Computed example of a mutant assay.
Amino acid sequence: MDSLATTPLADIIEQRLASALSPARLAVSNDSAQHRGHMGDDGTGETHFSVTVEAAAFAGKSRVERQRMVNAALADLLATRIHALAIKAHAPGEGA
């Protein structure tokens, strides 16, 4: 069995974003329990997530550009395993 199948998805998200963005601050929250029984809930308990990322890579980027950067790092997961992802992306020194 490959590590994608056995590692908690929140950990995979954290690893991917850390690698892609070298964040100063990163928090990943699994919000799936709040959406149990809703559309997109596949019963795994790993479908809905929130991320807060503070990274120098976001400096001078628009909100949409920042979200695209996060989405690019997680593209395969968004296509297959993540139903919903809430993103808060900031550059250092910006209000969170």
Rank of each mutant, 00 (worst) to 15 (best):
M1G: 13
M1T: 04
M1V: 07
S3G: 08
L4T: 13
L4H: 06
T6C: 09
T7V: 10
L9Y: 05
A10S: 15
A10Q: 14
I12T: 03
I13K: 08
I13H: 04
I13L: 13
Q15K: 08
R16P: 02
L17Y: 10
A18E: 04
A20M: 00
A20W: 01
L21Q: 10
L21K: 04
S22V: 09
P23W: 04
P23C: 10
P23Q: 10
A27F: 07
V28Y: 14
N30C: 04
N30R: 04
N30H: 08
S32Q: 11
Q34Y: 14
R36W: 02
G37S: 12
G37Q: 05
M39V: 14
G40V: 05
G40S: 01
D41Q: 11
D42W: 02
D42V: 03
G43C: 10
G45V: 05
G45Q: 02
G45C: 09
T47A: 15
H48S: 10
F49R: 01
F49C: 01
S50E: 01
S50A: 15
V51G: 02
T52C: 08
V53C: 01
V53H: 12
V53E: 02
V53P: 03
E54L: 12
E54I: 15
A55T: 03
A55Q: 11
A56R: 12
A56E: 15
A56K: 13
A57E: 14
A57C: 02
A57K: 03
A59W: 03
G60N: 12
S62E: 07
S62M: 01
R63K: 15
R63Y: 07
R63P: 04
V64S: 03
E65S: 09
R66I: 06
Q67S: 14
Q67A: 10
R68T: 00
M69W: 00
N71F: 03
N71H: 15
N71G: 12
N71Y: 13
A72T: 09
L74N: 11
L74F: 00
D76I: 08
L77T: 01
L77G: 09
A79N: 06
A79S: 11
T80I: 05
T80Q: 00
R81C: 06
R81Y: 00
R81V: 06
R81G: 06
I82G: 01
I82W: 08
H83F: 10
A84I: 01
A84S: 15
I87D: 11
I87Q: 05
H90S: 13
A91N: 05
P92V: 06
P92H: 12
G93I: 02
G95P: 04
G95R: 00
G95W: 11
